[in-house]
Design a protein around this nucleic acid. Structure first.
Lengths: 150, 150
DNA sequence: CGATTATATTTGTAATTACAAATAACGTAA
DNA sequence: TTACGTTATTTGTAATTACAAATATAATCG
């Protein structure tokens, strides 16, 4: 559905640039809300999920909170307490770095990988995003978003 | 910059669809963080800003919390307390609807409009979003995002 | 080495958010 | 009219987030 309809906009947007900015935020929140809703049954939020995915990308190696923070999709929350929860749930391990005792080594473990697999399957099954796009259009969308950020 | 670089992704994305989903979230958060940072000096957040813009769109008419919620870009927070703050700051008026005493009439007032003007000017001045897009590309981006949501 | 500056993480605290339950008023039908 | 289901908003409470200050370790420099 066109953005104007979804947010029941009465007046048209000033121009396509302003509309694009609102559209990017709206669509981002749309995806995030969908994701959050699907994660609820696993008792984690989108930040936790993002962290698990990042850690999986380096498995079996570790990352420290600072490195994780750098690459998070979303800067919300503070790493200490987000990771606290993942540790408490037994999905990741947190150990003092042997080279530099200021730093912590965060590693996803077997249970974390297993959960991630479940979550991915569920998200993939229920997600209808970009179902209406061709591969070419998806690529074009990526190019435009990258350009949009400048 | 390409998404892969920004989030320092080691492995390539599985396909353009997955990348598009991450890209949409990432870019949405990117815009939102920028906006939030610029709003800080005005002591409001992106939700408050969004509410003020919606109310301006109907000025001098009012909207009730339920109607505002429907069209918010972002469903975070609860309307009662978001509006509480706007009322306390003297930016909007909240009155019991004369037709239906369950409902509240929320109206932006002169001070609210004045603040919105200041905020818009500041955001417009510092925003570099879509500066690299042509009008045609912005339009294309909008079409693709609308299509992406399905 | 000792002092100083920088870096990484944690903690404290207030504000915000999620979610469910409570409140209040409306609409309708016996 | 009264009872009952519905709608609109508010409130309570726990979890999350923002932001600044505190802690702890490392690196640098005289």
């Amino acid at each position: 559905m066109r953005l104007e309809q979804e947010i029941k906009q009465v007046k048209p947007f000033v121009n396509e640039f302003v509309k694009a900015t609102v559209n990017v935020m709206y669509t981002g929140n749309y995806v995030q809300d969908f994701t959050a809703k699907n994660l609820k049954e696993f008792d984690i939020n989108d930040q936790h999920y993002n962290i698990l995915r990042i850690l999986k990308g380096r498995y079996p190696h570790s990352l420290c909170p600072g490195e994780i923070k750098e690459v998070l999709i979303n800067k919300r929350g503070d790493l200490t307490r987000l990771i606290d929860k993942l540790v408490k749930k037994g999905l990741v391990n947190r150990d003092v770095n042997s080279q530099n005792r200021r730093m912590m080594d965060i590693t996803i473990n077997k249970d974390g990988l297993k959960l991630l697999e479940l979550v991915n399957r569920k998200l993939h099954k229920s997600s209808k995003f970009s179902a209406n796009l061709t591969e070419k259009e998806a690529k074009q969308l990526n190019t435009l978003l990258d350009k949009f950020r400048g």
